[in-house]
Design a protein around this nucleic acid. Structure first.
Lengths: 352, 352
DNA sequence: CTGAAAGCGCTTACAG
DNA sequence: CTGAAAGCGCTTACAG
């Protein structure tokens, strides 16, 4: 067995007491240098800074906060890291908070729910909590009540409609109104809805938007759309989209336009149509949602909706930072972000 | 201006002192219940737990640690959240650490480098630090020295070859040996390398693997491969792949097999070849890297390499947890993970 | 510049 | 069960 090389006998410095002894100054003096207080000789300041560089000494954050320093910490509870839009929101928010000198405490929603996460945030004395994603509404509403009781700022990104919650969310309804208007403009009159039957609020809003868009053209959800979601399990979106396409093709009169919950389902559907010998958009138009990178990599490229994540999160960060340390206002702040329809090759004129 | 509704007059409980007063018990008693110490009446225990549920009181984590409780915190420094494999590694690690009752402190590498991140971790008295991704080697080596001096465990996921670092990394060399063997087996004798000219260690390892794979077939990097990376800027991988494909087609004798740095470049290349009227794999074979979801959504589906992220991160977590609180061993632990070649439709027999 | 003191919110003996 | 005390690592007046 090889012997460990002798450890360099570096006394580890763990406290200002240790460190003050090491530089040969009083604890008080070190503290004053660390906090940039006036009335110190430049020579002393330099001496301390040099010793910090050498030893890597960092004051214990736990003691600092206990003594009254702000934690400057924001808790971020993200529902999932498995979808690109969620990750992009998280990454953007973390960057913006860092630029404002806040530390992010990031937690992925655990199977045992949000209670544990929020309690952890509270024990870490965060100054605000952000929720990113789609949650169980009643549960999150409770968490937000709890935060309010503690006087802690909060914000929900992307889950509209939670009672009492400050919210920044995409106007999903509007997104679908525009998508349907685009397809109606191309002559489509019958629509397949792929994956939109979910009971989640976000899907509800999307259906409402489809209804509005259809109404504007004298059409209706009941008469002019078809959903076959119930025929297939949704294990994995791409395969789900392919399976749905096959089922639509098996109909006597398949809809000419397919509107999907997300880009993966849309691309799966395109793939399924192509496998069956059909062409997109010549025979069928297909639209997605989220404007993920992959929509530029397919043949045809994908018509989709961009969530405007950068703008969403910028608005969110601004609201959040303004809320911190301020007494809660009477009514929650609710901001909606306008989506951007990205028209590419997968939608075209309806077959005559 | 609307008046705020009167706030419910809930005295916010911020300390065990407040809380003890609220339940009508001594601070000491509350503390003993909180810490599950013996010799308390069940009735008292219940009273405290009920009050916790009602008030949402959480003891100040900063005071707890100061009093000697472990922080049970691990710092994770991730280079980027912009690539799916990095996110998957992060999410998996966070889950495994949580299952072992550790909190993750996640930081994305800031433009100003790793020093600030590690100092922050140190000030938070983390018990270990994990680096995920590709870094500037000398810089990370320094950070690791710093951590060792402080007696803090560390691990690098996916950046092999940092001196002195405990490392778990994919055997990228082996991955390329297998990829080349697969293509040679299909009759290919000339290879285009797409995006592999990067000076990063990971690309170096990949080139070494290509060389090994070629050598096994009596071929060589110098004579039988072609790289055109220098002809195009790499702003965005998909477009880069497309542009490279066009450049390869402009050659008098284009290679018959294209080996790409990642899936996006590979799919861009396939797209470029198809746009120019060629068929994959009938005219050209193309292989990617990372086994991202999108490789199943293209026509043809993509032959690629799976990083075995789950296994990688499981090994990493096991090593890390074993290291925590243990005196550093003589030599660093270096574990390599075997990749899995995923053969799909984008590779086929070489054109006669 | 130094040094002694108080106090942040907790836990942990210790004596009642 | 209670209550007073000490101490974790800091900062901040305060008197020298």
């Amino acid at each position: 067995m090889p012997r460990s090389p002798a450890q360099t006998p570096v006394r580890v410095i763990r406290s200002t007491t240790d460190f003050a002894r090491h530089v040969g100054l009083a604890r008080t003096t070190v503290s004053r240098v660390l906090n940039g207080q006036p009335g110190l000789k430049q020579k002393t300041i330099d001496r301390v800074h040099r010793a910090i560089a050498e030893t890597g000494f960092t004051p214990n954050a736990y003691a600092l906060h206990l003594k009254g320093k702000r934690t400057a910490t924001v808790g971020i509870c993200v529902e999932t890291l498995m979808t690109p839009p969620a990750v992009l929101k998280l990454a953007t928010l973390q960057r913006l908070l860092r630029e404002a000198d806040y530390t992010s405490l990031i937690e992925v929603l655990a199977p045992d729910g949000s209670q544990r996460v929020v309690r952890h945030f509270l024990s870490m004395r965060v100054e605000a909590v952000v929720f990113i994603g789609h949650f169980a509404e009643a549960e999150i509403a409770q968490r937000i009540e709890e935060l309010k009781r503690h006087g802690i700022a909060h914000l929900v990104i992307d889950h509209a409609g939670i009672p009492g919650a400050n919210t920044v969310a995409l106007d999903r309804r509007r997104a679908m109104v525009e998508t349907i208007a685009h397809l109606v403009g191309l002559g489509h009159r019958s629509f397949g809805l792929l994956g939109l039957s979910s009971p989640l609020r976000s899907a509800q809003d999307r259906r409402a938007g489809v209804a509005d868009g259809l109404a504007a053209a004298g059409l209706s959800l009941a008469h002019d759309t078809l959903s076959l979601d119930h025929l297939h399990p949704r294990h994995q979106d791409f395969a789900f989209g392919r399976a749905l396409a096959a089922s639509f093709l098996a109909q006597a009169h398949p809809p000419t336009a397919l509107v999907a919950l997300n880009d993966e389902i849309a691309i799966g559907a395109i793939n399924g149509l192509q496998q069956a010998g059909h062409r997109v958009p010549e025979h069928f138009s297909v639209s997605g949602f989220n404007n993920q990178d992959l929509g530029r990599m397919t043949v045809p490229t994908l018509t989709t909706v961009d969530q405007q994540i950068e703008r969403t999160v910028e608005a969110a960060a601004a609201i959040l930072l303004a809320q911190i340390g301020r007494p809660p206002r009477g009514r929650p702040i609710v901001r909606s972000v306008q989506p951007l329809l990205v028209v590419r090759e997968s939608t075209g004129p309806a077959r005559a």
